[in-house]
């Protein structure tokens, strides 16, 4: 099985309690995708959706992704080009959903206190190590358990299902 390459990207810093309603506001769930993406995190940082670039990383405080089970929450971040979320702690359903759609999500206690907005953050997905080289910061995040790393290696559950279907239909 292929490994998981290290991730390096620019940090967007958020506070604690970022909810799925902020990531994917309920009143836009049936709007066209382009429209929905414009509202991602607008109530926390209105400049985010317009300014985020492919390869960027979201760094946040505690309980990131709390709220509903909507998978659009991590999916919107991925669609905007975000490659990883590192937060002091992650809401349970959000972290599972992120992995399920192939977005790296790592809980790393007190990360939001040391990373500054715009820092270049580096993540070793398998070991869970998070660092900011230019400022000599190295923190140990929670390791993603093996069954979920396997989902990430496949690029998410959807590609994994295709191989299950191939089995079923043989």
């Amino acid at each position: 099985m292929a490994g998981l390459p290290a991730i390096r990207g620019r940090a967007w810093l958020f506070g604690s309690g970022i909810s799925t309603d902020m990531l994917s506001p309920g009143q836009y769930v049936h709007h066209p995708m382009e429209e929905r993406l414009k509202h991602v995190l607008e109530s926390a940082r209105p400049e985010f959706a317009g300014g985020v670039k492919p390869g960027d990383i979201v760094v946040a405080g505690a309980n990131f992704g709390c709220g509903s089970s909507r998978e659009s929450a991590p999916q919107h971040l991925k669609d905007l080009g975000v490659v990883a979320v590192v937060a002091d702690s992650l809401a349970r359903i959000f972290s599972r959903n992120a992995i399920a759609i192939g977005l790296v999500a790592i809980a790393c206690p007190s990360i939001s206190e040391v990373v500054k907005d715009g820092d270049t953050v580096e993540i070793d997905v398998v070991s869970g190590m998070v660092s900011v080289g230019e400022r000599g910061i190295v923190l140990e995040g929670d390791r993603i358990p093996e069954p979920m790393l396997d989902v990430l290696r496949h690029g998410g559950i959807e590609p994994l299902l295709a191989s299950i279907a191939a089995e079923q239909n043989r």
Binding site: E71, I93, N97, A100, I101, G156, L161
Partner: peptide, 8 residues
């Protein structure tokens, strides 16, 4: 759970 996990 989310949609992908439900599909699985």
């Amino acid at each position: 759970i989310g949609s992908s996990e439900m599909a699985y």
